[in-house]
């Protein structure tokens, strides 16, 4: 049986407006190619027979493909997309990879990229993200070689399932109909348009539903992290209403940027529960990026689910294959 794994490099990850309003760093495409190469070498070392690489518009995946084709044992194959230059390419690539039977997917990108991969292939294919975005709540801050190696070990079945974390997800409902999904947070903002997408001003926050938030996270998840730390493993999420009259939470909403966020109220949300957001002319942000514009007549609902991405715990995988046992 041919063991396959996927590699998706997002050329647009880590390039948004937060470079102008915070100390967010810019990860060049050249660096992403090098990260991709390390991932492939790691997958190869982990025993993967074939690596499927997304053929992106910028040719980053193609660079990895042409450079390593004769240097690794695994065979490499490019996966074509629609070439839209949007998240749709990632979604299509992840879907094709799943259909082609990959046992793991490594993503070079941020939380937005991981969300797109999850939308494409669902929660059954183990995945891991090499942190290359802005906030990287789901990203692994390990060398890409080791991330690839861990994913390779998972793909070849050399490690146990306890090396995987089943994350939660947040289904977004518009007038009762499912329209999108997020992994970490769904925020509702008092801004009428999507604009430059990333959330840069917390004063516009009206509500947010979180599936996860740790004090070690950057971005909106930092708010929950410093309010009520919640892991992916926990069966609870949280609904937070922003505004004066309650707690103040010091959070890191962008790299280098501390903000005192006013919390009017908050409460836990159970798996399966649908939270309805009071109506107004809002923008809905998924995992930190404004994606949907809604009118006063629309009813926005958010449902917490257990069917999120199957995330690879890199440290746990690598410890489990240590010579004397982890």
């Amino acid at each position: 049986m041919v063991i396959k794994a996927g590699l998706i490099i997002n050329p647009d990850a880590g390039k948004d407006i937060r470079r102008l309003v915070s100390s967010a760093s810019y990860l060049s495409n050249f660096t992403k190619v090098e990260l991709g190469k390390r991932v492939v070498m790691g997958l190869d070392a982990g025993g993967v027979d074939e690596v499927l690489i997304m053929h992106d518009n910028y040719g980053l995946g193609e660079d990895v493909f042409t450079t390593l084709s004769k240097r690794v044992s695994a065979s490499l194959k490019l996966v074509e997309t629609r070439g839209t230059g949007t998240a749709l390419d990632t979604i299509v690539a992840a879907k094709k990879m799943k259909e082609d039977g990959v046992k793991a997917i490594v993503v070079v990108g941020g939380d937005g990229t991981l969300r797109a991969v999850f939308k494409g292939c669902g929660g059954d294919v183990p995945m891991v993200c090499v942190a290359a975005g802005t906030n990287n709540v789901t990203g692994a801050f390990y060398d890409a070689t080791l991330v690839g190696y861990a994913a390779g070990l998972v793909a070849t079945g050399k490690v146990l399932n306890d090396c995987l974390i089943k994350a939660k997800s947040l289904e977004v409902l518009l007038n009762g109909k499912s329209v999108d999904t997020a992994v970490i947070d769904v925020a509702v903002l008092k801004t009428p348009y999507i604009g430059a997408r990333a959330i840069v001003d917390v004063d516009y926050l009206a509500y947010a539903v979180f599936s996860k938030g740790e004090p070690t996270d950057i971005g909106l998840a930092s708010i929950l992290g410093f309010l009520r730390p919640t892991s992916f493993e926990s069966d609870l999420g949280y609904l937070v209403e922003f505004g004066e009259g309650g707690l103040k939470v010091r959070s890191v909403v962008m790299p280098g940027e501390f903000r005192e966020v006013s919390i009017k109220s908050f409460r836990p949300v159970s798996i399966g529960e649908v939270v309805e957001i009071p109506q107004d002319r809002y923008t809905v942000a998924l995992d930190g990026e404004r994606e949907l514009e809604v009118t006063k007549d629309d009813v926005v609902g958010v449902k917490l689910l257990r069917n999120g991405p199957l995330l690879i715990n890199v440290c746990r995988v690598l410890r489990s294959v240590s010579v004397m046992g982890g």
Partner: peptide
């Protein structure tokens, strides 16, 4: 020099990014 990529078909996306710059 900090740089950002913007959807040049969306005037408000351009406006926001340019405002920050």
């Amino acid at each position: 020099i900090p740089s950002v990529t913007v959807d040049g078909q969306d005037v408000l996306a351009v406006y926001e990014a340019a405002k920050a710059a």
